[in-house]
Simulated scan of single mutants.
Amino acid sequence: MTAPPVPGLEFAFQVEARLGPPEDHGVTRAGHRRVVPIVGGSMTGLVEARVLPGGADWQLIRPDGAIEIDTRYSAQTAAGAHIYIRTFGVRSGPPEVLEALLRGDPVDPAEYYFRLGVQLETADAGLAELERSLFVASAIREANTVRYNAYRVT
């Protein structure tokens, strides 16, 4: 019997998303909800685009302190093509590290775990390959930005 191919990773693009001040919605029926506006940024690599303001990260802070990431935002290429970006994932680490990140303190990315799944959607035929691939990313949280490198799963 033939075994399925072993997946690999190839670098695809980097996103730098600038963030607005977090909105703490308190504890809802789903858990502790926080919404972090996305106010701009850039996408470089396989596709060059600017991140448009208006998206957000709808975070859920779990009882164990880990943060469930759920972002939706848009980017636009210089030619005017729109790319809808959705990420989902988790940021976790020791409580004091997560608190330092929330305050905007510089933290070594090796001290916490921040991984994402990335889905892209576009109507631009020249970028259609982005919709036919699966991407995973490793991310860094800074005071007013999130940066991640996305890799195409081969």
Rank of each mutant, 00 (worst) to 15 (best):
L116W: 09
P106Y: 05
D105E: 15
A66N: 01
L101T: 07
S42W: 14
E48Q: 14
E131T: 14
Q119C: 06
D57N: 12
A125N: 00
V47C: 12
R33P: 06
E99Y: 00
D64G: 02
V35E: 06
F88T: 13
V90D: 00
L46C: 00
G65A: 09
Q76A: 03
R86W: 11
R72F: 08
E121V: 10
Q59E: 15
G31R: 01
P109L: 13
A125C: 06
R33Y: 00
D70C: 08
P53S: 11
Q76E: 15
D57C: 01
G55T: 01
L102I: 02
A79S: 15
A79H: 02
G80I: 02
E68V: 13
I38M: 08
I61Q: 12
E99H: 14
D108S: 13
A125H: 07
R72K: 06
A49L: 12
L120P: 09
G41T: 11
H82F: 15
A78W: 01
D57V: 12
Q76C: 09
A49T: 07
R62Q: 11
G93F: 05
T87H: 02
L127P: 14
F114H: 10
A78Y: 07
H32K: 12
R72H: 10
R62P: 06
A66P: 13
G89Y: 02
D70M: 05
I38V: 14
E111I: 00
L130D: 11
P106V: 04
G104S: 08
A110L: 13
V97E: 09
I83C: 10
D124A: 15
V36M: 10
G93T: 08
A75C: 15
G65I: 02
Y73D: 00
R50G: 03
H82V: 01
I83E: 00
H82G: 00
F88I: 06
P94N: 05
A75Y: 03
A79C: 05
H82P: 00
V118C: 11
I69N: 12
L46N: 11
A100Y: 02
I67N: 04
G54F: 13
R34P: 03
G89H: 04
I69T: 07
R86N: 06
E96D: 15
G45L: 05
V51E: 01
I83R: 08
P53R: 04
R132L: 04
Q119E: 13
V36C: 07
G31F: 06
I85W: 02
T71N: 08
G104A: 09
A123W: 11
Q76F: 09
Y113W: 09
